[in-house]
Design a protein around this nucleic acid. Structure first.
Length: 626
DNA sequence: GTGTTAATAT
DNA sequence: TATATTAACA
């Protein structure tokens, strides 16, 4: 039954620091909090400190006169904005920060959440908000003590108090939070106490899936078995069964790829291909939503397996306009929400890695180091991206990059051959009619010094460096989907990557909050590749929030990593019910790759996401909720 | 105990 | 329907 400890634990003191340049807000929030705390629970004592200047707030935090449990800060303040403050607070004090602002734009909200805010309150603050804050504070406080206990040797994960959980679910449905709400003894009177055995459904978020892929990549596909993958992934709370299940799915996918998207597919018409090929799933929504008329879809095949190394064309054909899209997505998503189909990467010996000639591996995507693409689970954290922003033109685009020596294929090939990982020498584009016919290839050729090549020029060979050039999409993709001259606006184009080692860095770990951060030297600059959101890395995403990107636009017109539309990842969701049990193990040896900390603090990037407790920030924006 | 596959549940 | 979980079996 309920944890019974509260009887002797007398009184909890919760200290909250509120920062806002608006004194009215300060007093209102403060008094509301106090009022609520009085009413809520006698065993809790609340201390609220209000400060107008965020700099002063930091000083106060440092002063040690108080031991705060939580910081609530306004977002827009003259001296320092709330997110900056949050960053400091996180880094220096490891305290949760709630952002409040009158700015109710999704962008801001999501950015805040992704940036690590515990949750976000839209002003004017109302009673429910206060209640939420209060609950959160209580839960956090309680959680902290539990954490200590856990550190003390009780390794057993503690379970979240259903009360807090449900309260939050019910009352703050509009907030998302990244932080685990931990159980609180104080609220046990409401405790429902579900059987502890009730399992939560693990959601394979992109981030998690990325991790999975990385693990497989690291281990080698042929040697990747659940146990090893699990070890490699080093994600707490993740069980071998999860891996096994996911692996099963993944293998099915690979098999499908081998059967339909592999070499044999060369003989297939594009139409035939299209029906089941995973990458096109992304077209489904896009097309239905935005293209009532003809759509051009160019389907070079499935990811890496479709860009043969040895000179065969990777151009698979065109999908018929009404082709039904398959169910799985294999998109690689740039921070700027251009979608790139992501194929195999990480084959040191070039594209050939995917050729069946490697043999031995039943799934056809051989070479253990390679299969770096996979489906996009449709029912998972994708849909939330659908409602972003305004309508977009260039919804989907993907390009193939063949990193092998030559650009071999002729017309119809879609791809980029870069002779060097450092430099993309070649560029190829395509032109299609609105009904999907290829007009001409090579339209978009750019020289080295033209638009950015999409790869790092800044010392991270082999890694996509969106940040450095900003216009990866436009340049690399080679065409402007939004531009009628190249492709129908509704056109879709996909291909795959065949890359060399480690195109993409492992997603960063961040766990600033709990101090468990695997502190590796921070990267010399921002994380390369795939944004901070953690959603992008190897996986696809259907991004409907893409800004139009026109070929030729200067790079600085594009948002930098971490500043564009956010990948609303799991972090906007309510944390799992098992807070302690889903962190990436830190410093687990055998971990695949260096772990980077990004400035953006997507701390739970790899946290398994359990479906159950999802609290959406907004109904429409985020993941669907069971 | 582990890995794989199939069945079942959601 | 798609995906995750669980059971069953090698």
């Amino acid at each position: 039954m309920a944890s019974n400890q509260s009887s002797d634990s007398s009184l909890f003191r919760i200290q909250i620091l509120i920062v806002d340049d608006d004194s009215t807000t300060l007093s209102v929030v403060s008094s509301m909090l106090k009022a609520f705390s009085c009413r809520d629970n006698h065993k809790l004592e609340l201390l609220v400190v209000t400060i107008k200047n965020p700099l002063d707030a930091l000083s106060t935090l440092q002063s040690k006169n108080y031991v705060f449990d939580l910081v609530i800060t306004d977002l827009h303040m003259p001296q320092m904005n709330g997110m900056e403050l949050k960053k400091h607070v996180h880094e220096e004090f490891n305290l949760p920060v709630i952002i409040m602002s009158s700015d109710d734009s999704e962008n801001v909200i999501l950015r805040s959440l992704e940036g690590g805010a515990a949750f976000y309150i839209v002003k004017p603050v109302n009673k429910d908000d206060i209640k939420s804050v209060w609950r959160y504070a209580v839960a956090t406080k309680a959680g902290k003590s539990l954490s200590i206990k856990e550190i003390g040797g009780c390794g057993e994960p503690f379970s979240i108090n259903e009360d807090v959980n449900s309260a939050i679910n019910n009352e703050i449905r509009k907030y998302g939070t990244k932080e685990g709400r931990q159980s609180t003894e104080e609220d046990k009177e409401v405790e429902i106490h579900q059987p502890a055995t009730k399992k939560q459904k693990l959601i394979w978020t992109n981030a998690l899936h990325n991790r999975f892929l990385q693990a497989i990549h690291h281990i080698g596909l042929d040697k990747a078995v659940p146990k090893r993958i699990l070890e490699c992934m080093s994600v707490r709370g993740l069980a071998r069964e999860h891996i096994a299940s996911h692996l099963q799915k993944y293998r099915i996918f690979l098999r499908k790829v081998a059967e339909r998207g592999g070499i044999s597919s060369r003989r297939l018409s594009g139409r035939a291909l299209g029906s089941n090929l995973a990458p096109f799933s992304m077209l489904k929504n896009v097309q239905r939503e935005y293209s009532p008329v003809t759509r051009a879809s160019i389907q070079p095949g499935l990811g890496g397996s479709t860009i043969p190394a040895l000179g065969c064309s990777s151009f698979r054909g065109l999908l018929s306009p009404n082709q039904q899209a398959p169910s799985n997505n294999y998109l690689f998503q740039s921070p700027h929400s251009q979608s790139l189909l992501f194929g195999n990467a990480n084959s040191a010996n070039g594209a050939g890695a995917n050729l069946p000639s490697h043999g031995g591996v039943p799934n056809g995507l051989t070479h253990g180091t390679s299969p770096m693409q996979m489906y996009q689970p449709q029912n998972q954290a994708r849909s939330y991206l659908q409602n972003f922003g305004s309508p977009l033109l260039n919804r989907v685009g993907a390009v193939g990059i063949d990193q092998a020596a030559n650009y071999r294929s002729g017309v119809g090939d879609i791809g980029i051959a870069n002779n060097s990982l450092y430099i993309n020498n070649n560029y190829a584009g395509i032109r299609v009619t609105t009904d999907g016919h290829l007009i001409r290839s090579g339209q978009m050729q750019l020289n080295n010094n033209g638009l950015s090549n999409g790869f790092s020029n800044g010392g991270h060979p082999g890694w996509m460096n969106w940040a450095s050039n900003g216009n990866m999409n436009a340049a690399c993709m080679g065409f402007n989907i939004a531009s009628p001259s190249y492709m129908d606006q509704r056109g879709s184009f996909s291909s795959g990557f065949v890359g060399a080692n480690q195109f993409f860095p492992p997603p960063p770990f961040t766990s600033v909050y709990d101090g468990n951060t695997p502190m590796l030297p921070p990267p010399s600059h921002h994380q390369l590749g795939l944004g901070y959101g953690g959603q992008n890395d190897f996986v696809f995403g259907l991004t409907n929030n893409s800004p139009s990107i026109l070929l030729g636009e200067s790079s600085n017109q594009q948002p930098q990593i971490g500043q564009g539309e956010l990948n609303v990842s799991d972090m906007v969701l309510e944390p799992p019910n098992n807070p302690p049990a889903y962190q990436v193990e830190n410093g687990a040896e055998g971990a695949m790759n260096p772990i980077r900390e990004s400035d953006a603090n997507s701390m739970d990037e790899y946290f398994p996401d359990y479906d159950q407790a999802s609290t959406l920030y907004t109904n429409s924006t985020l993941r669907k909720h069971n």
